[in-house]
Design a protein around this nucleic acid. Structure first.
Lengths: 334, 334
DNA sequence: TTGAAAGCGCTAACAC
DNA sequence: GTGTTAGCGCTTTCAA
């Protein structure tokens, strides 16, 4: 049962193949009667064009490659949503690849996307293997790196300073008068690492000693992990005045653990999270957090890519800092 | 700056193109010395194979199409994660398309995927336009419909009875002794609709009168919507003894609204949600919910697809009910 | 406005 | 084990 091809449609309609192709791509270039005959034939035969052939012949794929470290994180879901909204509406296909927080997998993902001849790559993060970086630089297509700020962007870089954000969160706690401030995190990816550095910087500047608790995050339970981390910290006799969690889910878990133990928030311990997830504002107590602009990051990245493709020129090094915002709420006495 | 092709590699290595192709796809079929020369040439020239050409020539795409109504929902994120885990590891590429809860967009998505000659389609939901259904039936590839149970699956159907689940949730509340039970939902997609029907069935069987509150869900705030819906219901003087929310996020918002108004949960009003999201177990009060098996749905769908492709035969109508579980917690006095 | 010819970059099938 | 030939299904010239 051979699939129907463009040639089949052409013979059926009694026109040349190229006419069918034109009807499908630029109908205005074909006269009304032929157009109708072709459209009828397409419908009659149930013809579906083969994109692989079209891509090969035209050297255009109308595809954008996107690399994210994980699919299981609302942050990236929102970002992907924004990318989709802009790119799909502009007639592009989005291919999402998941690097699972591994630079090796990221390099493989880049190879796979290049093999597909994607017209641009949007990649979360600025840390790549040397070879990956080389591939991206030599690929001759627009590359957008997101979420972090790079000293040396490949092409375009859109993000925020994770370190400054970490510092700002910590400074907020310091301003509230706390000295014993703990830092809690799940897996220490580059972004959490930077936040941790910001935390240490703020603590150092204030003359305080920091202490962090890091624990690998199992796949499905950032909230539960927050409780676990918090419990562990308390069990060790490390009773802080305030906790900075690298993620709102962790913070929520930590708050629940405290509540379970009769520790008041913020009366006994203040808590600040990161990302300002939806529940933060309406949790109780409402959770202070650092608002990150992942939706805007996605939209802007997509728009930059579209204009670069339109201009068919590779954009020069551009760095856009979308910033962040400290949201002060009840969990830190706000 | 022409891209490096297989022919370039071949001349560089002094072998025929097909030998290069073999080294890349079945290295064992090529002698050691040639293999080394080819690999060196590939590296030296930075050759990246063109998948479009390969797909066209081999008539295999190693691509699976996946259609989901939205990307902005943890349920589908978990499901996609499971699909990715199985399919990517088996050497397939996953192309995800988002139908935005529209059957028309779903039909377009199907066309786009067929145009890409995906080797199987995994689609969330069982409700399609007549034309979409026809396309899927005639496409001669394995089709898996998920999340709901179909009377008449295209090929394979993996899911749960949304209606029974809605009924079970309601019956749980009825057993607790409640008569005035409200049903709260955001947008009424097919699955929520079925849950609503289950709710009405349970109420009817118990001889009670049901009342539902439906409101279109704006993109980013299921929790806030839950508060809004709850507030609206209370403002109208409709004070129920229990609330069944079609989603845990709504339930969380509703609980928060109640707390704000000094309404005790479960002392004044009981609340049950749906999906058993991560926070349900550790919210306070912990939230009763209906656990859905979306992760397993994803894995099983992917596995079924793989074995169908392996057998290169279209599977006959098969329906797999993965069931659900009523999780009784504090919010309904558990 | 329409068509003929050529070729995109790869692989299947068949020789050697 | 290696190469030759042909062709996958489209689109890009260029000519009419």
């Amino acid at each position: 049962m051979r699939r129907v091809t463009l040639d089949d449609v052409a013979s059926f309609a009694g026109v040349s193949p190229i006419t069918v192709s034109r009807v499908l791509r630029k109908p205005d270039a074909v006269s009304e009667p032929l157009r109708q005959r072709v459209n009828a034939a397409v419908k009659e035969l149930g013809y579906v064009p083969n994109v692989a052939a079209s891509r090969l012949a035209s050297a255009r794929t109308h595809t954008i490659g996107v690399i994210v470290p994980t699919l299981y994180n609302v942050i990236f879901a929102e970002y992907l949503l924004a990318l989709h909204e802009v790119l799909v509406d502009a007639g592009f296909q989005v291919v999402v690849v998941n690097s699972r927080y591994s630079e090796i997998e990221e390099e493989n993902a880049i190879k796979a996307l290049l093999g597909q001849r994607v017209e641009a790559i949007i990649i979360a993060g600025i840390h790549h293997t040397a070879h990956a970086r080389q591939l991206l630089e030599h690929a001759n297509l627009p590359v957008v790196e997101t979420f972090e700020l790079s000293q040396d962007p490949i092409d375009i870089n859109i993000g925020m300073s994770q370190e400054s954000a970490g510092q700002a969160a910590t400074q907020h706690l310091i301003k509230r008068g706390f000295k014993r401030i703990a830092f809690l995190t799940g897996n220490l990816d580059h972004r959490s690492q930077s936040r941790l550095e910001g935390y240490h910087r703020a603590m150092r500047e204030a003359g305080f000693e920091g202490f962090e608790l890091v624990k690998q995050k199992p796949r499905h339970s950032a909230i539960a992990l927050g409780s676990t981390l918090c419990a562990e910290m308390l069990k060790r006799g490390n009773i802080p005045e305030a906790i900075f969690c690298t993620d709102d889910n962790l913070a929520l878990g930590a708050m629940q653990e405290c509540r379970k133990r009769g520790i008041g928030i913020p009366s006994d311990i203040s808590v600040i999270g990161f990302h300002d997830l939806e529940f933060a504002a309406c949790a109780s107590p409402s959770l202070s957090s650092i608002a990150s602009r992942r939706y805007e990051t996605g939209r802007l990245a997509a728009e930059k890519v579209l204009s670069a493709i339109q201009a068919s020129s590779r954009p020069g090094g551009e760095r856009i800092d979308l910033g962040f915002e400290v949201k002060v709420r009840e969990s830190t006495g706000g």
